[in-house]
């Protein structure tokens, strides 16, 4: 099968797996239907369990070549996979690993679990990795085209909060909004703006050694791996953006930084976990933020018709903020 995304996965992610896992996964992809292969969302590797390929439809355990028994992942497989993913240099990724993830070429990401050594209430070191969740990134260029025209203010996207549960495509939509805002989008009358992405977890631009692996637009600056509260202030002072893009806000520090940014006259495109606006209003920090910040719109996503289903785009009036906020 030939498909740009699939070819990318095969050339960028597959070689990073331990050889014992690489061949069976490759065999599965060669034999499975194109719908299953193109629907791949995650590969899950857990010690003592078979590798699982998660697609949008169902999960596929990987079997051992000829005999029909599951292939079991061993701790050595995960150790070697980690070595390959970090180019034999886990220390060089210790900051990412403290946040239990690794960024891979092509914007793909790996969630990690294992034995955590903590210090002063935060993760100091992750060792003996026992689970990996390889999330296959899919940059859906154009997915924000139906949204951007509805959140415009003076030909630029107004401050908008994207709300959805995990895995519904918030980050993908945010990335495409950043790209369209940066490049401009004539069809909807969007003019190009200076965009600053503060990408604390390297999810939006998916930088690898500082270079965005996703197309985030020609007029976009990315601050990769920088904590949001610090990064937003630095970005405003140093790069003079018109729009700031940050993913998953929610902490008190995020709230303060967002308020500062908006007081500086910068527009904000951001996301938060939740089912709908009512959910957001039940979280004190986000309630404070939505009540204080003049968000122009809320975009609600779900997986009802697959990831990225746009449920509603609400103008952020007091009514939209819900009675619970009053």
């Amino acid at each position: 099968m030939t498909h740009a995304w699939f070819d990318g996965v095969k050339s960028q992610v597959l070689p990073l797996l331990a050889p014992r896992l690489r061949q069976p996964l490759n065999d599965w992809m060669e034999q499975a239907s194109s719908q299953a292969v193109l629907g791949m969302e995650e590969w899950r590797l857990r010690t003592g369990q078979p590798p699982l390929i998660i697609t949008s439809q169902r999960d596929y355990p990987i079997m051992r070549g000829s005999c029909n028994t599951p292939l079991m992942v061993e701790s050595e497989d995960l150790e070697l996979t980690l070595q390959l993913m970090t180019r034999y240099s886990p220390y060089a990724h210790q900051e990412e690993m403290r946040h239990l993830f690794l960024a891979l070429p092509g914007g793909h990401r790996v969630g990690l679990a294992g034995q955590v050594l903590s210090e002063n209430g935060s993760v100091r070191l992750l060792q003996h990795v026992s689970s990996m969740n390889i999330r296959l990134a899919r940059s859906v260029a154009g997915c924000a085209q139906t949204v951007i025209g509805r959140i415009l203010q003076d030909k630029r996207p107004a401050s908008t909060l994207i709300i959805s549960p995990p895995g519904c495509g918030k980050t993908t939509l945010l990335r495409d909004l950043a790209r369209l805002s940066s490049n401009g989008f004539d069809k909807e009358g969007v003019v190009a703006s200076r965009v600053g992405i503060v990408d604390e977890r390297s999810e939006v631009a998916a930088c690898l050694r500082g270079i965005p692996q996703h197309d985030v637009g020609m007029n976009t600056d990315v601050l990769d791996g920088c904590p949001k509260p610090i990064g937003m202030g630095l970005m405003i002072r140093c790069m003079n953006p018109e729009i700031i893009v940050v993913d998953e806000i929610g902490s008190p520090q995020d709230t303060e930084a967002v308020l500062d940014a908006l007081n500086a006259g910068v527009r904000l495109l951001t996301t938060a976990h939740g089912q709908d606006v009512d959910d957001i209003m039940q979280r004190p920090q986000l309630r404070r933020l939505t009540q204080t910040v003049q968000f122009s719109h809320f975009v609600i996503l779900s997986r009802r018709r697959g990831p990225g289903t746009i449920e509603r785009i609400l103008p952020a009036t007091r009514d939209a903020r819900g009675s619970k906020s009053e």
């Binding site: 970090t86 180019r87 034999y88 240099s89 220390y91 060089a92 210790q94």
Partner: peptide, 10 residues
């Protein structure tokens, strides 16, 4: 390189 640059071993 390892301590300050955090560059890959290779």
């Amino acid at each position: 390189e390892v301590g300050y640059g955090l560059v890959a071993l290779s």
